[in-house]
Nucleic acid binder design. Structure first.
Lengths: 196, 196
DNA sequence: CATTAAGTACCACGAGCGTTGTACTTTGGC
DNA sequence: GCCAAAGTACAACGCTCGTGGTACTTAATG
């Protein structure tokens, strides 16, 4: 069982599941996208549901890792908090541009009642919750009270374009405005600058 | 073509589409849920896609109307802004409990690439955007600068529980914290109270 | 009551899909 | 270069589904 084939399958399945969702996606389509025969697909994964679970896990893991790197990079060289948070927001927004993963997140949200609770838990733990924990940790270091909620607030204020459409990207003005609201809303003791 | 049957179909279809999504939902299942024969269903709606469009429109319309009523009711008797916004947030959160509509919204988000753009536009206009406009209008009356963004911020700060799971309900503490951040973030000239 | 529009029960079709089996080919380690 | 393991091509199964047809029943109107 060659691991390159397995990776190709996972990547192809991510594409197709993200675009079409679980039920609309067909095994044949995934196999074609991955340039693999359906038989090898079934050699690597027990069935469609099993493949879906692995795709979710893999994608969540990669995205979380990328985002955590972004967090570390941006929070280790804070000079002007507001300006740096805006930069951070823009960088996270650019991540959103890497659309496949977030389309998959939309599919997961739609399928919530059809995915076993334990798979959801696993996804949350290795994905979004891990990211939020990392962000909350950085905010705590900066002196934010209630860092867990602050992390959520920062994310929704800077990553939400049109709240009706998940994953719609805010423009730079939206991000700047969101950061401002966030900073005025969460008072910090050791804020270094409050300028602009 | 009796209109009670049409309504029954729309209600049943809402249930099934909300739970299963477009492709997983079956016409037979919808007909059974609506206690109607599939043939009458096809007598009222051209095909599955047509039915889906009507379900989206109807549900968005009803939900928007309910929410706009909520907005009017809460914003016409403002005495303590913070406390009243918390009450408003709780009332909106309770709306979220009426789960079928918001499950449908998740399905729409998942199907974004498979729904014709004009249908999305129509949905946004009669649904979420109308609600936001109403909310922004009230906030403007209260003296908020940038009321459009304020409306978005208020909604995401008070209606978001776990951002990873759309429609997850925040608890009362979350709502109170969200309102506080919102009010500190958006400075108002004629704020009446800033207590608690 | 009669007529007519609307609804129902049921069948049938064609297509797509998940999944498996089989016989053949490729590939990587000895 | 050989052999076992992995991959491929392809056919076939059983099932579900969207959709339309047809003959029968219900219900409302004059």
């Amino acid at each position: 069982m060659r691991p390159d084939k397995r990776q190709a399958i996972l990547r192809g399945a991510l594409s197709v599941f993200a675009r079409d969702g679980y039920s609309r996606a067909s095994i044949d389509g995934i196999a074609k996208e991955a340039e693999v025969s359906t038989r090898t697909l079934y050699n690597h994964f027990a069935d469609k549901a099993d493949l879906f679970r692995h795709v979710i896990q893999t994608s969540a893991n990669e995205a979380a890792q990328d985002q955590i790197h972004l967090i570390e990079r941006h929070f280790h060289k804070i000079t002007d908090l507001e300006q740096d948070l805006v930069e951070f927001g823009k960088a996270m927004g650019a991540q959103l541009g890497h659309a496949e993963h977030f389309a998959l997140v939309r599919q997961i949200n739609a399928e919530l009642t059809h995915i076993p609770a334990e798979a959801i838990e696993a996804w949350l733990d290795t994905g979004p919750h891990k990211v939020r924990k990392a962000l909350a940790g950085e905010l705590e270091k900066l002196g934010f009270r209630d860092p867990k909620r602050a992390a959520i607030h920062l994310l929704v204020l800077t990553l939400t374009g049109d709240p009706a459409i998940r994953g719609s990207r805010p423009d730079d003005d939206d991000i700047a405005a969101g950061v401002k609201v966030f900073l005025h809303g969460h008072d910090v003791e050791n804020r270094r600058t409050a300028a602009t």
